[in-house]
């Protein structure tokens, strides 16, 4: 059992987003492996609750900055799924007209701005979003996703310290799946709970189970309240497990077995589903229906995208300079 102030409608929306993200990852993996998606594809299979819990604490006006493992983050923020599918295929109907591909896409309509393939780099940009909100006097906040590996970069350190001293309304969300690409957390830092570092910046830090979508929501919600009140940034560390290799098609047989066993045991969708059913909010049948409906939504989006045209040369030359010069 659990207690929450969230409405049933909101809880169901979170459950649906978990499935939307999971089904997206399953299909994207398949399409990458059979050659229908090109380039590398970093999957967030198993990590969906971090993104869904965090974005549940945000408004549409709030900005997020994602990572190279961005699909669940973007879906959680509410991006247009059809635009996303088309972007993954490099089609002109993609949300960035096929220019971005899977690591970099953005959707201004929901302020998902955006993915980032430079590890750690996005956190600094999120500080800038928050700087603008504070100076312009809006009530918005920004949230930067970054990994445990990214937490060792200079860019993230500089960003957090900068935002702290300026009291900018930003949430630093460390999505800790315990891995860089092929190097585990304990080989990259001696710190166990990475949110402990918050103390070193003079701001609050919290570590939660990132596979518990409500725990992530609660922690981020507190951080958002603090940011909106003008008290500055916080660090939230959500510990999670990636169920796949570092990207689609990479083997996991050489990775520690117990890591993957634990990850499977802690499937964030099942954990949430059990709670919702125990609370009588919905039934296994309804859960199944949501799983099916989201799978169809993803399939339809990709089918439509695969029939859409590619961008032409005119698109290539657009926005080299996005504003007139002189």
């Amino acid at each position: 059992m659990f207690s929450t102030t969230l409405s049933i409608e909101k809880l169901l929306d979170m459950y649906r987003k978990l499935w939307l993200a999971r089904n997206h990852e399953l299909l994207a993996e398949e399409w990458k492996l059979n050659g229908r998606i090109q380039g590398s594809v970093h999957l967030s299979t198993g990590q969906e609750a971090v993104a869904v819990g965090a974005c549940a604490a945000l408004e549409v006006d709030d900005y997020i900055m994602g990572t190279h493992r961005e699909h669940a983050q973007m879906i959680a923020k509410g991006v247009n799924i059809r635009g996303m599918a088309a972007e993954m295929l490099g089609k002109v109907t993609g949300m960035n007209q096929g220019k971005a591909g899977h690591m970099l896409f953005s959707d201004k309509s929901v302020n998902a701005l955006g993915g980032c393939g430079i590890v750690g780099g996005g956190a600094a940009v999120a500080v800038g979003y928050a700087m603008a909100f504070k100076i312009l006097g809006t009530r918005q906040v920004s949230l930067a996703f970054f990994g445990d590996g990214a937490f060792n970069t200079g860019a993230v350190h500089e960003a957090i310290n900068f935002a702290s001293v300026r009291k900018y309304p930003v949430i630093f969300l460390c999505e800790n799946n315990r891995w860089g690409l092929t190097v585990m957390q304990h080989e990259q830092t001696l710190v166990e709970d990475l949110a402990d570092r918050a103390r070193g910046y003079g701001i609050p830090g919290a570590t939660v189970n990132g596979n518990d979508v409500l725990a992530v929501y609660e922690a981020v919600n507190l951080a958002v309240e603090r940011a909106r009140a003008g008290d500055g940034p916080s660090v939230v560390e959500a510990k999670t497990w990636r169920m796949r290799g570092l990207a689609a098609g990479y083997p996991i047989d050489w990775e520690p077995k117990d890591y993957h066993e634990e990850g499977r045991k802690q499937d964030p969708i099942l954990l949430f589903e059990e709670k919702l059913i125990a609370k009588g909010i919905f039934t296994p049948e309804k859960a199944k229906a949501i799983e099916e409906e989201t799978r169809k939504t993803i399939e339809e989006a990709y089918d439509e995208a695969s029939r859409a045209p590619y961008p032409d040369e005119a698109v290539f030359w657009e926005n080299v300079f996005a504003a007139p010069i002189g």
């Binding site: 089609k91 591909g101 080299v320």
Partner: peptide, 10 residues
């Protein structure tokens, strides 16, 4: 002098 776009078509 153009950023390198993803789409194979671009």
């Amino acid at each position: 002098d153009v950023q390198i776009p993803y789409s194979p078509a671009l």
